[in-house]
């Protein structure tokens, strides 16, 4: 097990920079997610880690070993990494056991040792009864688990996962998320997980690298990312919330309720600072509001089981998202209390 160090990694396809000066340090045993919308360069970054793409600039280190730079390229087969592909990439001409055992064969593992390790890997994903089946006979979730077993059979230094849940239905996703977390806990492997689904990344990763147009926008724990997103774009990409313009505060500052409400009361021309207000930080008072209150009109509401999502429009035209335990009347005027807000950097 080893950590990964990325220094100013760049990948250029013709004129287009798919990955642009990305630097990261992944600790040994850490579970890291590369998160971003499609086309942000996260898959290209993963393929550079695996060695399928050469870097155009910068360096990738695994522990002390240089894996890739402009002049140097360690081939994928010599990197001791493993990968779960979006399509699983199970070889259709081999049985489940042969699929899992293939990396062992390449390392010269034979006989009883080979049998034991294949069985061990299959038992870790609870697939021992399926050892002699072919991949075509398995369901999507089972194929996914075979791919996982194949990854862990050789104790790779890094496990790469390329949108592994993209092809599964919603129900299966939840249970697979659980098995990934479990897998990581047991193997303590360094894992890099690529996804465009923020809830998946938040649920699984120790740290998340948010990418936009080839650049790293923020590199933080899920909690920090949720509570303190750096830019306006990250705030809109992660979690729910409303962005308002106010006249006080500075990027990277947390504002209390009073300061926030005062900043909001200033004339529009003076309000230059974007602030993120999460719905859990808005209190809605359905009883008739008084003159002094901050008011808004109920535009739309969605039943979510444990609560209603209330979409509000304020007098100035800004929209707000809040939660409320009961249904409200459409068009109803309500009073609002904002509890806190987080000041954002504008986007580049």
């Amino acid at each position: 097990m080893a950590g990964l160090t990325l220094k100013q990694v760049t990948k250029q396809f013709g004129e287009h920079k798919a990955v642009d000066g990305l630097s990261l340090t992944v600790e040994p045993g850490e579970f890291v997610a590369l998160l971003g919308p499609s086309g942000c360069g996260k898959t290209t970054m993963l393929r550079m880690l695996a060695g399928f793409e050469q870097v155009s600039g910068g360096e990738i280190h695994l522990g002390d070993q240089l894996l890739a730079s402009e002049q140097h390229h360690v081939l994928p087969e010599q990197r001791n990494m493993a990968m779960v592909f979006q399509s699983y990439a199970l070889w259709p001409h081999m049985s489940v056991a042969d699929n899992v055992g293939y990396p062992l064969k390449l390392r010269g593992v034979r006989g009883a040792d080979y049998q034991r390790r294949v069985e061990q890997a299959l038992s870790l994903v609870a697939l021992e009864p399926y050892a002699q089946r072919t991949p075509q006979d398995l369901s999507g979730g089972q194929r996914q688990r075979v791919a996982l077993a194949r990854c862990l059979v050789t104790d790779p230094s890094v496990v790469l996962l390329d949108e592994p849940l993209a092809n599964l239905d919603r129900h299966l996703r939840a249970s697979m998320e659980h098995s990934f977390a479990d897998f990581h806990r047991r193997t303590e492997a360094t894992m890099v997980y690529v996804t465009h689904d923020q809830s998946e990344a938040m649920a699984l990763a120790d740290r998340i690298a948010v990418m936009q147009a080839g650049k790293l926008v923020q590199w933080a724990t899920p909690e920090t990312l949720y509570r303190e997103p750096r830019t306006s774009w990250v705030a809109s990409f992660i979690g729910q919330g409303s962005q308002l313009m106010i006249s006080t505060g500075a990027p990277g500052r947390r504002l209390g309720g009073n300061e926030l409400m005062q900043g909001l009361a200033s004339p529009a021309a003076q309000r230059h600072q974007a602030v993120l207000v999460r719905p859990e930080h808005i209190q809605v008072h359905p009883e008739a509001p008084s003159e002094q209150d901050l008011t808004a009109r109920v535009e739309r509401q969605t039943f979510r089981g444990e609560r209603y999502e209330i979409h509000l429009r304020m007098q100035g035209g800004e929209t707000l998202l809040a939660y409320h335990p009961h249904a409200l009347k459409l068009g109803q005027q309500v009073a609002l209390t904002l509890l806190e807000g987080w000041c954002l950097e504008p986007d580049q």
């Binding site: 695996a50 060695g51 399928f52 081939l75 994928p76 087969e77 010599q78 990197r79 001791n80 990494m81 493993a82 990968m83 592909f85 979006q86 399509s87 990439a89 199970l90 070889w91 293939y102 990396p103 390449l106 390392r107 194949r150 050789t154 790469l160």
Partner: peptide, 10 residues
Amino acid sequence: SLEEAAQLAG
């Protein structure tokens, strides 16, 4: 990816 998987396997 079938071939890439084999490549990563060594």
